[in-house]
Structures are given as C-alpha cells and as structure tokens.
C-alpha cells in the first residue's frame, strides 16, 4: 500500500481508461450498425428472390409491394411498436408488411430460406424486446435510487455500472432494430411482452442493492442465453454477427454483477440455456416468438 489514497489514484487512472473505453464504444457502434444494415439488405434480398421466382400471381403481388411497403414500414419509425406480423393484419394483402410477415410465418414460403428469414426477423424482434426490457430496468433503477428505494445510498460503482450497461443495451436494441427496419419489418420498441409483468413485479419487490444486482443478473443471463441459443438456429450470417458480438457483452455484464454481489464471477463452465437460480440466475433462453412476431 502507498501513502496516497488508493481510491483517489484509481479514480484518476480509471477515468482515463473510461475515456478510452467511450472512444472505443463510439468507434465500434457504427461498424456494427453498418454490418446490421447489410443484414437487413440480405433479408430483403431473400424476400425479393422469393417473389421473383414464384409463378404464383398472388405471391408476385406480395413481392411487388415489398419495396414500397418497406418504405412505409420504415416511415412508421419508433412510434409504432407493433411487430411486422401485427402490422400485416391491418394492411392490404399486397403490402410489403404482408410480404415480410408471410415470409416470417412461412405460410407463403416455397423455400426454407424465406422461412428462415422470417424466423430471423422474429428472433431479432425478441432480441430488441429483451434489450428494451433491460434498458427499462436499469432506467427505473436509476430513477428510483435517489428516492431511497435501495437504501440510503447506492455505491458509485453500481450506479456507474447501471448507466454503462443501460447505454450498451440501448445500442444493442438500436442494432437489432436497425436490422429489422432495413429488412422491411417493424422496429420493436417495447419491453419483452412475455417477461415485462414478471420483471415489473420483481422490481417492485427489490429493496436493496444486492436485490437490484440479482435482478439485473437475471436479465443479463437471460439475454445471453437467448442469443447463444440463436447461434444454433439463425440462418442469416449477418444476423449471426449481431448475436455473436452482443452475447459476450451480456455475459460480461453478468460477470461483473456477480463480482459486485461477492460471488465468483465465472460460475459456469459452459453458458447455460435453461432457467437457473443463484449466481447463474436466468429465466432461460427465450423462444424466438417471445415478442409476438411469428
């Protein structure tokens, strides 16, 4: 130990490292965003190919509306949280949303690849919903902390972690939604509908920092498990890029939360996909249909 205040020293050094980290963050995000843009184009290409190769007039009409519908859907922007499948139910049969949702459901798909594209869209919607749920949870925690919900004070490291993780989850959600939007599907801007009530209930029961960290750990492990499972099911290489580069980050969030909780930070030899408790707390890998896009 030195005579100097160790934490003062560490804060100074760590601030410098944080600056470097934020620069890396700013540098990395556009690259991934661009990559996901390619992913969206790839999915649209699949849908277009589906239409072009079909001799069926109805399928042709659906396909011919793809470009226009894609624009219409994109114009819906963030204000409309309805998934592509929901939107198609109220749209004309020849709209692009219909093309997207038909492919998503596989109902009008003559090939496995278009069905795969639909599954990828459903999975991406679920992923965006999980990210939104995490943002919601961290945002709520940051809002409630000053009111004393978690005790007299929240350690600076916990507060900073919450801000940092929330920022990264926002970027993850934006990345998944960018892919959906470019693919002609609707962005998914709501928290995961299958888990929202459960998480709201759990959040209401949290009374201290460890309880908050445990809830966050559960959400991080759930997202990580979901994305890892999708590595075996997604069909589009660019969709794989998204989950491959995001899943390790969610797992890192979990490691640091475990450390803050006093637990061993790497409790599992392999990522677990099922529901777990304790330091591996997880609601389990979520199905692709969790967001309601099928």
């Amino acid at each position: 130990m030195t005579d100097r205040d160790p934490l003062q020293i560490s804060e100074a050094e760590l601030r410098a490292m944080t600056k470097q980290m934020n620069e890396m963050h700013a540098e990395t995000f556009p690259v991934l965003h661009e990559s996901l843009g390619d992913f969206g184009s790839s999915l649209r290409g699949k849908l277009r190919t589906l239409a072009e190769h079909s001799a069926n007039r109805r399928t042709f009409l659906i396909g011919s509306g793809a470009a226009l519908g894609g624009v219409l859907l994109a114009a819906c922007g963030k204000d409309d949280p309805k998934p592509a499948a929901s939107k198609s139910s109220s749209a004309a049969p020849s709209s692009a949303s219909s093309a997207a949702s038909s492919a998503a459901s596989g109902a009008a798909s003559p090939s496995g690849s278009a069905g795969g594209a639909g599954k990828d869209i459903a999975a991406l919607s679920t992923n965006a919903s999980l990210e939104n749920l995490a943002v919601f949870a961290y945002m709520s925690a940051l809002a409630e902390a000053p009111k004393g919900k978690f005790g007299k004070s929240v350690p600076p490291a916990v507060a900073e972690f919450a801000k940092h993780a929330m920022m990264q989850h926002k970027d993850h959600a934006a990345a998944f939604n960018a892919a959906l939007k470019i693919a002609g599907a609707a962005e998914f801007t709501k928290p995961n509908p299958a888990l929202a009530d459960t998480v709201i209930k759990l959040f209401g029961e949290v009374k201290d920092v460890p309880g908050l960290a445990q809830l966050a750990l559960t959400l991080e492990n759930t997202a990580g498990a979901t994305y890892v499972k999708q590595m075996g099911t997604l069909t589009n290489p660019d969709a794989l890029k998204a989950v491959a580069t995001i899943a390790p980050v969610e797992r890192q969030h979990a490691a640091i939360l475990n450390f803050v909780l006093g637990n061993y930070p790497v409790p599992d030899v392999f990522v677990k996909l099922d529901e777990q408790s304790g330091s591996s707390a997880s609601l389990g890998a979520r199905p692709d249909t969790d967001a309601g896009v099928s």
């Binding site: 390790p248 640091i256 450390f259």
Partner: peptide, 30 residues
C-alpha cells in the same frame, strides 16, 4: 476478493469506473 476467498468485495469502495473498465466493448471486437 470474493466470498470464497475470504469475503465479498466491498462494493461501496469500488471505484465508480471499475465495472465499466471491465466491459470496454459494446460489441465484441474480433
């Protein structure tokens, strides 16, 4: 330190930036 090696870390004393330092990439670089 962790519980198993003598006690949980003191979260209140952890430098604010420490957790963020541990997760420097928003998307894993390759």
């Amino acid at each position: 330190t962790v519980k198993e090696t003598g006690g949980a870390t003191d979260a209140a004393k952890l430098p604010g930036a420490a957790p963020s330092i541990a997760i420097p990439e928003t998307f894993k670089k390759i």
